[in-house]
Design a protein around this nucleic acid. Structure first.
Lengths: 343, 343
DNA sequence: GTGAAAGCGCTAACAA
DNA sequence: TTGTTAGCGCTTTCAC
């Protein structure tokens, strides 16, 4: 059907306001006014315009509209690190819910933790005159050159702190959750605990680590530094480190996975071990941040300290709109989501 | 720092090409030419332009550029059903990889299976003059009015067929996978099999169901229609139906979950049953489509027939660019991804 | 090699 | 109430 449609003929002319005006026998302004709500337009003319719009399948050109001074683009730029990670996907969903409520649309990109990709994305967002930005910073310790280029466009940074810039930020309570994780492990008698996470490049992991470390030290313990490993390529790296831990003469009795993908990496190595005949009792307990669906159905001991990515996204978006609406002005704000309820 | 930045002062003027030209002591055209590659511009003038661009943090206005005839927007509109479902998140990642390779950017929205939201999204994408569209249709049987409004903008529909329109389509091999699922269950002696999926509204689920049914019938069997249930709100619905199945006088010995979220719903009910003291042996085997991480670590019997959402996204995007590049013209194409390898 | 002029589609300000 | 004019930021003629 579509192939024979007039509108889809090669080189088809996209109808403009002027085409609508001509068909309706009015001027372009009358079309504009009608589409803007019909104030000060005679009802019969409005009807003719509406008919012409329908007949031509006219859609206003948002890019042209945006060119006029005082007009908003209706776009929010969103940069996350990994679309296929359900934590960030759910974060983006939370953002979109609020963005949608406010009649805006999302330009979305994922950076794969690359600072240069992040700079490219945000530069393009700015070129398209987004009204605001929501960013989960890539985990490289590179300076964020793009912060200087934001002009007066509001931004909310989420989930991780941006070291070299003062901007609105919303975080999870990483410290409190880190303390809970460590306290639970200490209470159960664990003395030899491993930690897998991007301590250097990701502030959330660092906060989680340092809070856990403080609890250990208060109990007269410490992390064996050979059991603290950085992870860049989440799942395979975490699996490889886990393999190394398990092969030690004195393996840890617990492993903390600083995010959900690292936890999956740990567990995929567990899966390989079990397939090779290992006993469940010999595997270290896993303490997992973020989320892990169906963890209670796993044959291996996993304790999940869940967070709320959807709430994080909604909060970030709401903070952004408070700036856009002028409800909040002045110095950057820092919000922290309440820690997950104790189970 | 940023609060004291000149550029972020309230009412800051966003620098335009003209500002750059003035600062560099050239005309606007020379700025344009320099930014377009510098053809026919004296090197010393180019340098002055580049310096001025840097000094002003100038970013070209893509909306204005797009207004000129013959210019492309550089935008691809992507509509999926649920950002927080890792299957679709990974699909979107695959799309983005190719879109990024081609120097384009994504407008992304998720529809939550709502046809009206889909219409709204795609209308907005068209208003922003996207170069192409990639759509996973919402699962309502509503007619797709927006198909008529696409003009000559190419579209690729993925994962599900669009009933009332002829457009480029890429699907998974739902029929083959459905046959495998049923054949495996029949071979293992299952006679009483339940099916949870959106048979009416989602073509992928219907294809999976019908292929499985054909295998059953060839073996002289059938689905008990009381064991075939539609699912709209994936996880809770699937859990509720599973509850009902398990409470039957003659519960099924196997349950087919038509997608990954339905499978999670089934398993969350299993989790509740086990917590209440049920025995693993009494739970029906679960046959799961799409993907389910760490399924081999679950204490309950789950068989996963994985698909490749990233490949699906990449293929959809490649098909789109083949149209955009004019490498493919004419009648709509239908591609089917090869079924997952047999384990 | 450079710039002036025109115009993309739209809407605010002004005139009728 | 309606239309005419001007101009948003950019690039493509067309002169020089």
């Amino acid at each position: 059907m579509r192939a024979h449609d007039d509108a889809s003929a090669a080189g088809a002319h996209i109808p403009t306001q002027k085409d609508v005006a001509r068909l309706a026998g009015v001027s372009a302004v009358t079309v504009s006014r009608t589409l803007a709500g019909g104030k000060n337009v005679r009802p019969d003319l409005q009807q003719r315009v509406i008919d012409a719009v329908r007949q031509l399948d006219y859609l206003p050109n948002e890019n042209a509209r945006n060119l006029r001074p005082g007009q908003q683009s209706g776009l929010i730029g969103v940069s996350i690190t990994n679309l296929s990670n359900p934590f960030y996907g759910t974060f983006a969903l939370g953002v979109e819910e609020v963005v949608n409520e406010r009649g805006r649309y999302m330009l979305l990109g994922s950076t794969a933790e690359s600072a240069s990709r992040e700079t490219d994305l945000i530069g393009n967002f700015m070129s398209r005159r987004v009204e605001g930005l929501i960013v989960i910073p890539a985990g490289e310790p590179a300076p964020r050159r793009w912060v200087h280029r934001l002009g007066s466009v509001p931004i909310v940074v989420a989930a991780r702190r941006l070291a070299d810039a003062e901007v609105d930020t919303v975080l999870m309570d990483d410290a409190e959750t880190g303390r809970r994780v460590a306290a639970d492990l200490v209470r159960e008698g664990h003395r030899r605990i491993a930690f897998l996470g991007n301590i250097v490049t990701v502030s959330a992991h660092r906060d989680r680590y340092e809070a856990a470390l403080a609890v250990l030290q208060a109990a007269g313990l410490d992390f064996d530094q050979r059991l603290v490993r950085g992870v860049t390529n989440d799942v395979p790296d975490a699996a490889a480190h886990t393999r190394a831990f398990l092969d030690l003469a004195h393996p840890p009795t617990a492993i903390i996975g600083a995010n959900n993908r690292i936890t999956v990496g740990i567990l995929s190595e567990y899966s390989a071990r079990l397939a090779a005949g290992a006993a469940v009792e010999d595997l270290p307990v896993v303490a997992a941040f973020d989320q892990l669906e169906l963890s209670e159905l796993l044959r291996v001991p996993v304790r999940v300290y869940a967070s709320d990515p959807r709430g994080l996204g909604r909060t970030a978006a709401r903070m952004l709109f408070e700036r856009l609406d002028g409800e909040v002005t002045g110095a950057p704000r820092a919000a922290v989501l309440p820690p997950p309820p104790v189970e």
